[in-house]
Structures are given as structure tokens and as C-alpha cells.
Simulated assay, not measured.
Amino acid sequence: MKNSKKSCLTCKSLQTIKWGIKKNKQRFKCKNCDELFISSNKSVSDSNKEIWFKNWIIGKDTFDKISLESGYSKSTLQRYFSKMLRKAPVLEFNSTYEIYLVLD
């Protein structure tokens, strides 16, 4: 059986209990160090950012629309997307044929 206890972000203890809800997210309290924290799922957050980025690039959604959907400010989205653009893959190919690139 998988352990469903949240570990404390400060002391890494598993002695945590649920401690109310804040901004629609479950809060936890560490019995060891009395630290309050909200557990987050980083992988879901990252995949959501990728979906919003694709909607901005391919789907032509505006920052206003994505901001309303995501709950992030436009400046935060711009910061996330600029990081993603800096990590854009470089496509290399070796061809003896002439290649024409058409952009709209």
C-alpha cells in the first residue's frame, strides 16, 4: 500500500496532518516543526504550462485568455513562456535538396 502522508517541506517529517483549506487547496501542518504548507503537484503544474504554451503558439490564444483560464497573471505567463522559448529545440537536417520555408 502506498504511503499517502505528505512530508513536511521544512523538516521532511511524515508527521503531518490536514490543517484546513486555503485558496481551494488542502493545507497541512507538521507535528514535528509546526510548519504550515500546501502540497503541490509539480508535474501537473508543468504539464499545464506546456498546454497553455502550445495554445499560445499554435492555438493563437492571447495572454488575456490564458490568464483567465490559468489564474496566473499575464506577466507570470510571459516569464514562463520566455523560459520555454529559450529552451526551444534546434532542428538540424542534412539534405541535398533545396528547402523552402513558408511562414504565415
Results as ranks from 00 to 15, higher is better:
residue 12 K to T: 04
residue 33 C to D: 01
residue 31 K to D: 04
residue 41 N to Q: 13
residue 51 I to V: 14
residue 63 F to T: 05
residue 38 I to S: 12
residue 66 I to F: 07
residue 55 N to P: 00
residue 37 F to Y: 10
residue 23 K to M: 09
residue 70 S to V: 09
residue 20 G to H: 07
residue 27 R to I: 01
residue 71 G to K: 14
residue 68 L to M: 08
residue 66 I to V: 12
residue 10 T to K: 12
residue 34 D to S: 15
residue 19 W to K: 08
residue 16 T to Q: 04
residue 8 C to L: 09
residue 53 F to I: 13
residue 33 C to A: 01
residue 18 K to F: 00
residue 51 I to M: 11
residue 42 K to Y: 13
residue 68 L to Y: 08
residue 36 L to Y: 07
residue 71 G to W: 13
residue 60 K to H: 09
residue 69 E to N: 08
residue 28 F to R: 02
residue 70 S to W: 05
residue 63 F to C: 03
residue 49 K to Q: 14
residue 23 K to W: 08
residue 7 S to G: 01
residue 61 D to Q: 13
residue 7 S to C: 02
residue 14 L to K: 06
residue 44 V to N: 06
residue 70 S to H: 07
residue 10 T to G: 00
residue 51 I to Q: 11
residue 19 W to H: 15
residue 67 S to H: 11
residue 62 T to N: 07
residue 11 C to A: 03
residue 11 C to E: 01
residue 55 N to E: 14
residue 38 I to K: 04
residue 44 V to F: 07
residue 38 I to V: 15
residue 53 F to W: 08
residue 16 T to R: 13
residue 34 D to H: 12
residue 17 I to N: 02
residue 18 K to V: 03
residue 41 N to K: 15
residue 71 G to P: 09
residue 59 G to F: 09
residue 47 S to T: 12
residue 55 N to L: 14
residue 11 C to H: 04
residue 30 C to F: 09
residue 12 K to H: 05
residue 17 I to E: 13
residue 47 S to I: 12
